[in-house]
Design a protein around this nucleic acid. Structure first.
Length: 501
RNA sequence: GGCCCCAUCGUCUAUCGGUUAGGACGGGACCCUUUCAAGGUCCAGAGAGGGGUUCGACUCCCCUUGGGGCUACCA
């Protein structure tokens, strides 16, 4: 039988990286084994579920490249794929369970249940449903319910039995039914509860492997019991360890970014996030940087770590740098655009010339940043320059006031004026050589600090890249879409003009 | 409290009874570079504790400790 896996998020917020990793592992398995990846929306919590969240989750999954073969938005033969659209299905199944006696109606109020729980806790007993309504006559129960008395449907959990299931990452896991109180299958509002709906959905959607977070491990025996009540064979299970913050507490907002959307907004490339997420709990022991499809080919559930993993943003940055360095210029330009726009460095629309300029500059700069949101700062000196500001820096001013320095600046201004646009490293170097030929030995030594002054950056992209980038940008037509950039030669002239003769 | 899961460098991991316990991120040093990075070379850094099993345990078993999860008419 073909492998069918699923990712079943609740649309109650953004896609968390922990859940994204669960989705990824499902996707990896499906892609690696030629299986089918199903996306189901678990929106039975009417209070918290929203269409907006659902749309965002779908968007985040698509951004990561985790395309699903079947499910919401994609269709398929096992729909509908939203639980709120499957209420009729659940109702039919509930009738079956009720008539077979595997489930029963419970009329206990929330208040009495709460009181019971408190009493049990106070007595040092494990809090569990006492089974008050277990022995009610089904016909009588049905009549009461029909008369309008609110009730929930509970699963009749067999007493004194062992429930075991095989976990693909952990091996045999066993629970005793004495530990499990009869779980609510259908709430009093008639809506199927999680532990019930998942089972019916996974069964009807022919899911062969349920891969989900470790937090579901204790729910699994309840679900296995539901499978049994229906006479179904449970699928294979695999419970993934959780993703933790640096303090080993489950990753949460106080650790900083936790959602896929936030990492995207910070300028991490999707392939970097995907590659990194796969590295939490899985690895080859050697190579770590590889595209998702290569991971899929090597991925095996048996190799997945049993223990929780700490999310390490430093390592994510390293992975991201790698993909930034290997991205094509065109890709870099299109990925960078939103960040440049946010800072007003680029004003829509960007012309072909502007695009070309970005593609020429970005590869050099991208090699020295961790994330795209660092780009504006890194490029700051290309877009902004003030001769006054340079001279306001006392250390810088002192150097520029050296007699030889003035000669260098003027020589530079002169050379740049006649050199034509500097388009690359080489054209800049030849200009530099010309300047040095015109100055003294002392002047040569001062050339470097002067370059720093002109680019306005002690730290920044490599100067040989930066200077031509500035110069070249000046040659762009005004409609290029890039915010004003000052000529490198203009800068030299401006500084020279401000220097006393 | 009860039940369940987990335990190798700070972090992610390799090892599937016999290794100087390997790699990666991060850290440090040096090299390269007339700048920041990047890159290269090198260094420091780990089997939670205690019992077993075995000729031999990081590896298998038990206990302790520690972390996490579940114990809802939330998923």
């Amino acid at each position: 039988m073909d492998m069918r896996v699923r990712f079943a998020p609740s649309p109650t917020g953004h896609l968390h990286v922990g859940n994204a990793r669960t989705a990824l592992f499902n996707w990896l398995l499906a892609r690696g084994q030629g299986g089918t990846f199903v996306l189901r929306i678990e929106d039975t919590d009417l209070e918290r579920s929203t269409k907006e969240s659902e749309a965002k989750i779908l968007e985040d999954l698509r951004w990561m490249g985790l395309e699903w073969d079947e499910g919401v938005d994609a269709g398929g033969a096992y729909g509908p794929y939203r639980q709120t659209e499957r209420f009729d299905i659940y109702r039919e199944h509930t009738a079956r369970l009720l008539s077979s006696g595997h489930a029963y109606l419970c009329f206990c109020s929330a208040e009495t249940l709460e009181a019971e729980r408190k009493a049990q806790l106070a007595a040092g007993q494990p809090p569990r449903y006492a089974g008050t309504c277990r022995a009610l006559d089904p016909a009588e129960s049905a009549r009461r319910h029909a008369a309008g008395e609110p009730a929930v449907v509970r699963l009749r959990v067999p007493a004194n039995r062992e429930v075991t299931f095989h976990d693909l990452v952990r091996g045999e896991v066993r629970f005793h039914t004495d530990q499990i109180g009869d779980p609510v299958l259908v709430r009093s509002d008639g809506i199927a509860a999680y532990n019930y709906a998942v089972v019916i959905d996974d069964q009807l959607m022919a899911i062969t492997h349920v891969i989900r977070g470790e937090d579901h491990i204790s729910n699994t025996p309840r679900q296995v019991l539901v499978y049994e009540a229906f006479g179904w064979t449970p699928p294979a299970f695999a419970h993934l360890s959780l993703v933790l913050g640096p303090d080993h507490a489950p990753l949460s907002k106080r650790h900083g970014a936790t959602s896929v959307a936030e990492f995207r907004a910070k300028g991490y490339l999707p392939e970097a996030l995907v590659n990194y997420l796969a590295l939490i709990g899985w690895g080859t022991g050697a190579e770590e940087l590889m595209p998702a499809m290569d991971i899929a080919r090597r991925f095996r559930l048996e190799d997945v770590s049993h223990s929780a993993g700490v999310f390490d943003e430093d390592k994510l940055s390293w992975v991201n740098r790698h993909y930034l360095k290997t991205a094509s210029p065109a890709r870099l330009a299109s990925e960078s655009l939103p960040f440049l726009r946010d800072n007003g460095l680029v004003t829509a629309p960007l012309s072909a010339d502007g695009h070309q300029w970005l593609e020429a500059v970005l590869p050099g700069v991208a090699a020295s940043i961790d994330r795209l949101n660092q780009l504006p700062e890194r490029l700051h000196s290309v877009f902004h320059f003030s001769a006054e500001a340079v001279l306001a820096d006392s250390a810088m001013k002192q150097e520029l006031l050296e007699p030889e320095a003035r000669a260098v600046v003027r020589a530079l201004a002169a050379v740049l004026d006649t050199a034509g646009p500097l388009t690359d490293r080489e054209s800049f170097r030849s200009a530099a050589v010309q300047v040095k030929e015109r100055t003294s030995a002392k002047g040569k030594a001062l050339f470097h600090p002067i370059r720093l002054a002109l680019t306005g950056a002690a730290a920044g992209p490599e100067l040989d890249i930066l200077v031509p980038a500035i110069d070249r940008a000046a040659a762009l037509p005004p409609d290029a879409g890039l915010r004003t950039v000052v000529f490198c030669r203009e800068r030299a002239a401006q500084v020279a003009a401000l220097l006393p003769a």
